[in-house]
């Protein structure tokens, strides 16, 4: 079992065996989370700071709970309301925070690469909780754990990722992870929501849901990033729902035992039909939330082990 990283900045630098290491440990934390007494002490004595430069309820709560269950002192900083508004640069904020000697820093930022930049300037372990449209590694890991538990494996599956791929860091991290684990990936969505150069990612691209979903094992829906849209990507929400919203009719093209996933928060009636989201036989959306806490516990545990083993050493 190896995990040779100081930070968790993305899926890109991880090896398949490292991904498996995180998921195996996360499985144990799922079991812990289901007990009445949920405490462990892997992070006891460590300080975890959550810095969210962008709105988040679920991810921040998930990281907070994960840290607390492992015994860390957790502090949340709502960065939108604070010094950024007063003109402080990201580096200055990082240096200020660094002086308080945190051990784990969880960062979300609206700009791609901002978390990498911050990681270069601080002495603690940094976890990327989403940067711009670059990566969201813990989301991809929790999705992987959900799939592995539902399907019994995480390889040689047909997986369709549907919707707003272009603006989605969730899609990028998932493509990278599922590709590393040797799955067959399809991207389904209108061409306006496909990123450039997508043909070089070893994926199949569809602009038609019925064809894209044919015989897949997993249907991964993405949130239509309304807040990111400059406008003009789609003609209207109702046409989008008609052509790309997941309803029973479209889902019928997938395998009978296909699971439905969504990173949340959902726009019911925009990208997904409410009854499908609530169908306990198909939807694993609630499981994803549970796996999120476990995966984040596992990731922070592994980083903390490296931190304790090599306090000063710089690892990749």
């Amino acid at each position: 079992m190896r995990f040779d990283h100081r930070h968790l900045l993305g899926i890109e630098p991880l090896r398949p065996d490292e991904i498996t290491t995180i998921l195996d440990l996360a499985d144990q934390y799922v079991a812990l989370g289901r007990r009445r007494e949920k405490h462990a002490n892997a992070l006891a004595g460590l300080t975890q700071v959550n810095m969210f430069f962008e709105n988040s309820t679920r991810t921040q709560a998930s990281f907070e709970l994960a840290g607390k269950r492992l015994g860390a002192d957790v502090m949340n900083m709502a960065m939108q309301a604070s010094s950024i508004k007063k003109g402080e640069t990201l580096i200055d904020t990082a240096m200020t925070l660094n002086a308080m000697h945190p051990d784990l820093l969880v960062v979300r930022h609206p700009h791609s690469g901002a978390v990498d930049l911050l990681a270069q300037k601080v002495n603690c372990a940094v976890l990327n909780a989403g940067d711009g449209r670059h990566e969201h590694p813990t989301q991809a890991l929790l999705d992987a754990l959900t799939i592995r538990r539902a399907k019994g494996r995480l390889h040689r599956l047909n997986i369709a990722i549907c919707g707003d791929i272009a603006h989605s860091r969730v899609a990028r991290s998932n493509i990278l992870l599922l590709h590393k684990m040797e799955n067959r990936i399809r991207l389904v969505g209108p061409p306006t929501l496909m990123p450039s150069g997508v043909e070089h990612f070893g994926v199949e691209v569809y602009d038609n849901m019925e064809e894209g979903l044919k015989d897949v094992d997993v249907v991964m829906m993405l949130r239509l990033q309304r807040e990111r849209m400059d406008g003009g990507f789609i003609p209207s929400e109702r046409e989008y729902y008609h052509r790309y919203g997941l309803d029973a009719e479209k889902l019928a093209h997938a395998k009978d035992d296909a699971i439905v996933m969504h990173p949340g928060p959902m726009n019911r009636g925009v990208e997904i039909d409410g009854t499908i989201a609530d169908d306990i036989n198909r939807s694993v959306i609630q499981d994803q939330v549970e796996m999120g806490v476990a995966v984040r516990m596992a990731a922070m545990d592994l980083l903390a082990r490296n931190l304790r083993a090599h306090p000063k050493e710089v690892m990749a």
Binding site: G113, R169, P195, S196, G197, D230
Partner: peptide, 20 residues
């Protein structure tokens, strides 16, 4: 408008807005 790199695989990998 709003682009930081040339569009394509690299732009997408880095999640940066690209220009064709």
């Amino acid at each position: 408008k709003g682009s930081a790199v040339t569009s394509g695989k690299f732009a997408t990998l880095r999640g940066l807005p690209g220009v064709s």
